[in-house]
Each structure stands twice: as C-alpha cells, then as structure tokens.
Design a protein around this nucleic acid. Structure first.
Length: 354
DNA sequence: AAAATCCGCAACCGCGGGAGA
DNA sequence: ATCTCCCGCGGTTGCGGATTT
C-alpha cells in the first residue's frame, strides 16, 4: 500500500502532530494562506504531505473551530440532517458552524450509534418533554414537499445540478432554523391541532405522489396522512412494505422493526448501526409476523448485555427502530398512524456495501 | 495494583471528481 | 480525448486515556 501521491517522498512524517508542527503550520497559513496544499509542507518547513497538512488545519487548527461537547441543539440538528442527507458529513458539517465533518462523523459513529443500540424505555407515563412529541401530529409543509421532491430528484437524476443541491440545502437550513410552519388546513385526515413539532423532527423525503384511488386500505389511507406519505408503489407491494428511497439511497431496503419489544430493548440494524427509526409517540408498534424474528433479535441483544443507562434523551425517546431485514407491515403502519407519530429518523445506510 | 477491555478521537487511506495541460 | 495533479469526501484504523475486571 503506497501512500498518497503527494506523500511518496521520503522523510514524510506520519502520525500525531507535535505542537511544533502545529505552530509551523499555523504560522505559515495565517501569513500566507494555503493556496496549494501540496506546496504548504515545503514552504512551512514541515515534513508532512500536503494532504496531512490540510487535514490537520481543517480538523484541528482552524481558528474558527469549535471544540467540546455537542450541544443538545447540535445533536438534534445532526439527527435531522442525517435523516435527510445520510452520511454526507461534510454537508451536515456545513450546517454546524465550527464543527468539522470528521468530528460529526466520529460523534455519530460512537455516541449516536450507541444510543441506537440502547433504545428508549417506552414509559406509559410520559415526561413533560415528551408530551410535546407524543401529542404532536405529523405534518406536511410546502417546504418538506419541496425538499422531498428535490431529494428524490437529486437521488434519481444523474443530471442534478449544483443549483438544485443548493436549493435543497437552503430549504433544509430554513426549515431547521425557523419555527415550525402551520399545518395545512383542511383535509380529511387533518391531524388534531397540537403543539408544533420540535426542532429535531426531520423532513420526510418520500415520494409524495398521490396513491391510486383504488387503494382503500388503512395503508393506502396513510397517503392522506400528512406525515406518512409513503409511495403508492411501496404500499402496493404486499410482499414487502419497504420504505421508498430517500436522498441518495437513504432508506433503501429498510423495513420496519419492532418498537415495543419486551424489556424495551431494541436493536438497530446490523452492519455497523445501519438503522432507521420512527417515532411512535411513545407507543409501541408491532408487526405480528415479526414476533419470531424479533424474539431472536431480542435474545441477541440481551446476550450483548444490558442497558443500565437508559436512553433519556428527549429527541430519541420515541424512536421506533427499523432494521433492514424486516418488513414494514400494514399492522405496523396502522399502529403508527393511530399513535400520532411525530418523528421518523433514518439512521446510517449501508447502501455502499456489496 | 495490574491487566484487560472499552471508547473517543485524531489521523490515514482510497476513491471520485474537477481543472488544467 | 486523455492524462495528471490536486482537492475533498467518506470509511477505516490505531493510539491513548478511561473504565472495568
């Protein structure tokens, strides 16, 4: 395994940076800038490759870098953005000033993944904070529809333009920074008027095209649900009620997983925490035919040891775990609908895996 | 107290894409 | 049209401190 082309020279140092090296790099960049990274090491008197210098500067030495723990708001933002764009860490980082993609990636891979593995305790007595989400209805907004359409387009079209990516970016930014828009008026499936969803509720990037009129099942009625607008195609396939793809393959092949398992234990999808979750307003939702699979999984989970530390984060309290080897069944959907679910959270996807 | 294990984080690696020759 | 260089990104590794046994 050779090093990167810029690192082929002899005497290129690797590993941790010393304070002296940091100082040299800072001094050089603050006085000269970094026009061409490949030239930086030589001009700065460093025995590093340009790539290493760039990484060190961007991830650690930049003056505007923000260090320390992620705040609750940042955490929610990460969750929401990840639900939309998936593992595009640089994209997510662009919405979190002072945070680097590397930092967010590490954060997600450790902390949030751990949370997904240690699911919430579904208490019947809701907390004060959860009262917001349990009563919050699904909502659909013009912005989310636009984002959904854009997301679908960017995913499916090889000719998507930079402007379209920027547009999606703008919508995301706006939606995450402005107060939740009012619910659309009217509609036979209008949700009850309740408090707006909290910040952490992400968009749904599903196809919002109307279902065939022939569909009259509860599943089909979900199309009218402003918050659960799955594709008609997905709903029409009895064998596998899989969620339609989100942006860049997010949600591909993801299917429903039990959310009210015994002992409140849930497991995210395997393959390194590839999981999605759906809030269910504090209620469990089961697919009966999933029970056996679930039990098997539960046993595996229990063998892994138990969650003594409970998942008490508000933003994660009502997540229904999904796994990519299980199916989203009509009964699941009905249960979700009746529970006035407020959050759909899509975890990392593994569509890159073979 | 020492060894083993876990976990967070910094850094590396490989790949894809854009720009320029 | 092709090649080369460089940048930026996501995935992965490995170090070192913290925690557990």
């Amino acid at each position: 395994m050779g090093h990167h082309s810029c690192c082929n020279q002899q005497k290129v140092k690797r590993g941790l940076w010393s304070p002296e090296e940091d100082e040299k790099l800072i001094r050089y960049i603050t006085t000269h800038g970094y026009g061409c990274w490949s030239e930086v090491p030589e001009k700065a008197g460093l025995q590093r490759c340009g790539k290493s210098c760039r990484l060190r500067w961007i991830n650690y030495l930049r003056p505007d870098i923000r260090r320390g723990r992620f705040s609750a708001e940042e955490e929610k933002l990460i969750i929401s953005l990840h639900a939309i764009v998936g593992n595009r860490w640089a994209h997510i980082a662009s919405h979190l000033p002072g945070r680097t993609d590397n930092e967010i990636k590490n954060y997600w891979n450790s902390w949030i993944k751990k949370k997904i593995r240690k699911p919430p305790v579904m208490s019947t007595t809701t907390t004060t904070s959860s009262s917001v989400t349990t009563s919050s209805p699904p909502r659909s907004t013009a912005a989310s529809d636009t984002a959904a359409a854009l997301g679908h387009h960017l995913q499916t079209s090889p000719f998507a333009t930079t402007a379209e990516h920027l547009q999606l970016d703008a919508i995301i930014s706006q939606s995450l920074s402005l107060p939740p828009p009012k619910l659309a008026a009217g509609g036979e499936h209008s949700p009850p008027a309740t408090a707006p969803l909290p910040l952490h509720c992400p968009f749904f990037m599903f196809d919002t095209s109307p279902p065939p009129s022939s569909l009259t099942s509860p599943v089909a009625q979900l199309h009218q649900h402003p918050f659960l607008t799955f594709t008609a195609a997905a709903m029409e396939t009895p064998a596998s009620y899989q969620l339609p793809p989100l942006v860049d393959g997010i949600g591909m092949g993801m299917t429903a997983m039990d959310c009210s398992g015994h002992d409140h234990h849930h497991q995210a999808g395997s393959n390194g925490g590839q999981a999605a979750a759906m809030a269910n307003g504090g209620r469990g939702c089961y697919g009966q035919q999933q029970q056996q699979q679930q039990q098997q999984k539960q046993e595996e989970v229990e063998q892994l040891g138990h969650e003594e530390d409970q998942w008490d984060d508000e933003s994660a309290q009502h997540l229904l775990m999904w796994d990519d080897d299980q199916e989203l069944t009509p009964s699941n959907l009905e249960a979700m609908e009746s529970g006035a679910h407020s959050l759909l959270f899509m975890g990392p996807n593994d569509h890159h895996h073979a």
